[in-house]
Design a protein around this nucleic acid. Structure first.
Lengths: 294, 294
DNA sequence: GCAATAGTGTCTATCAGACAATATACC
DNA sequence: GGTATATTGTCTGATAGACACTATTGC
């Protein structure tokens, strides 16, 4: 247990006398992509309300990017993990604690923060509309929910020496107090022995830092996971109808789904209750809850 | 474009006079889980060689963890992204450049490095056995390939207030110059409104830092992606038989597969060539290469 | 009764698991 | 010829897409 190194020093002696070198160190932040689903009023008393996917943004009150909208986030402290920093940020911004939280990706582009060297470890959180009431307008900082739209714009494929490069551009639109938009490209370089994917911000109107890229990445992760996990259930209130669940899937995937197939697919993810909707102007619907087993 | 903040300062003035605060900053490193597949000699001239999944480790020549085995890695420099640092590390350790590289996860547990506050952004690289010749024993540092085994040991499920906690323990064994082993647990806490997964090192014999956890995470990612992407093809040489490809899938998944079903499944991932194996002691096999389109 | 949604049935094409049958070099 | 692998065929059950049909409430 007390091996000596080439200077004849034990590990505990080494740690005792260890002084961090003069290497330059980055600041590390967490940035949170917090999603929720809200309901829009319907035209007719009979129609169901429309669902919308929303993300929480905060207007920057100081330089840099003064007045632009940014993801909630902040510096990671020496006594906490990035996970803990994310939980802390989430609680500060929304007041909620127990929600779905997942590390997304660590962004480290040079110059992504004009002030200094900052690496961001990004997270995605899913909040159900029940909890949503708790927050909003709690402290001075201006926070707002923006409706998310993320659609493919264009696709290019270029053949190269030993493979090809495929570039797909997406339009990210965020509608809230203001209308923000950005174009993000995803470039996949496929060669015989390698495959690499890169995200780039092509244009950007109203979002701070590289946050358009982070939001795009989060949406892609969310869309991917919705298909093969029960992740979308974290966007639902305690009780919900299958039609509401389907609407959430549809608004996340930006795609219409077939009712029968959808119900088969989610059958194992939900649990029947004996509750029903009432006064809907049409046939009542059974309420379900998330199925926890397995 | 030149908004003034509450002190009446423009963004460029702000950046001009910006001085990083006295916040403590972490060191950021990249750690690389570099996988390859090698062939073991067969008993009989007729039998095919057995494939093995291997990972590259480096014996630590100084404190802390002197003499233990660690993942290749190093500090991220101020003029590079974590991706670039990973590529640099990979080249330094193996001499190869164009390989599959994917960011895995950012580990930030308190005390994961006994010296100081270090956050590690981990990457997985896949190298094919062709390229493998290039490296090994190039510089003074002792690097070696270890055969990987990662098997479920035990599963527990505990019911709690509003959900359950499922703990699965895995045994990680690494066989190379020495025999290293660790037990890593994956704990999933499922409650009505949240789901969280956590990895923990239960025991650890011979691996430095929290690298057992990183390797476990990498294997799980690799196993997951093998099923629905062409990622495994990055472990293959330029030309290969379908049986060899199947063996790679089997050694990665630690599971036998049915031949007919396997061939149907990978049909679109590979491209026929007119080449065949020779002198095999049995019927020759057609050689395939990675199919690049789509 | 009618509008609007809830919920179920079923046909078909596709695909994975399972197993079998046939094919072919090389010693 | 015999061994060990290569390659294809096919049966079956499960599943997704597509569409249609029936059910039920509140006004």
């Amino acid at each position: 247990m007390s091996l000596l190194d080439k200077d004849g020093i034990t590990e505990s002696e080494f740690l005792e006398q260890y002084r961090p070198g003069d290497y330059e160190r980055p600041s590390v932040t967490t940035d949170m992509v917090i999603f929720t689903v809200t309901e829009e009023e319907a035209d007719s008393y009979r129609k169901l309300p429309e669902k919308e996917l929303r993300v929480l943004l905060i207007r920057r009150g100081g330089h840099p990017f003064l007045g632009k909208w940014a993801l909630p986030g902040g510096f990671v402290r020496p006594d906490e993990t990035t996970d803990q920093a994310a939980v802390r940020e989430l609680r500060e911004e929304t007041g909620v604690g127990e929600v779905y939280l997942e590390q997304l990706y660590t962004f480290s582009d040079i110059g992504r923060d004009p002030r200094t060297w900052v690496i961001s470890c990004s997270y995605m959180a899913l909040i159900n509309s029940d909890k949503l009431e708790l927050k909003s307008g709690d402290d001075a900082s201006e926070a707002a929910w923006f409706k998310v739209s993320y659609r493919p714009l264009q696709e290019q494929k270029e053949l190269i020496e030993d493979g090809y490069i495929k570039t797909r551009k997406y339009e990210l639109e965020l509608n809230g107090e203001e209308k923000l938009s950005a174009i993000v490209s995803r470039t996949t370089t496929v060669k015989t022995t390698s495959t690499a994917t890169e995200y780039e911000i092509v244009s950007n109107d109203g979002l701070a830092f590289d946050h358009a890229k982070i939001i795009a990445y989060a949406i892609e992760r969310l869309r991917g996971k919705v298909n093969y996990t029960d992740i979308a259930l974290h966007l639902m209130p305690k009780y919900f109808t299958l039609t509401e669940l389907q609407q959430v899937y549809e608004v996340v995937l930006d795609k219409e789904l077939l009712k029968a197939a959808f119900r088969r697919k989610v059958a194992d993810l939900v649990e029947e209750t004996d509750l029903y909707t009432e006064n809907a102007g049409h046939r009542p619907s059974r309420l379900y809850q998330r199925h926890l087993e397995d």
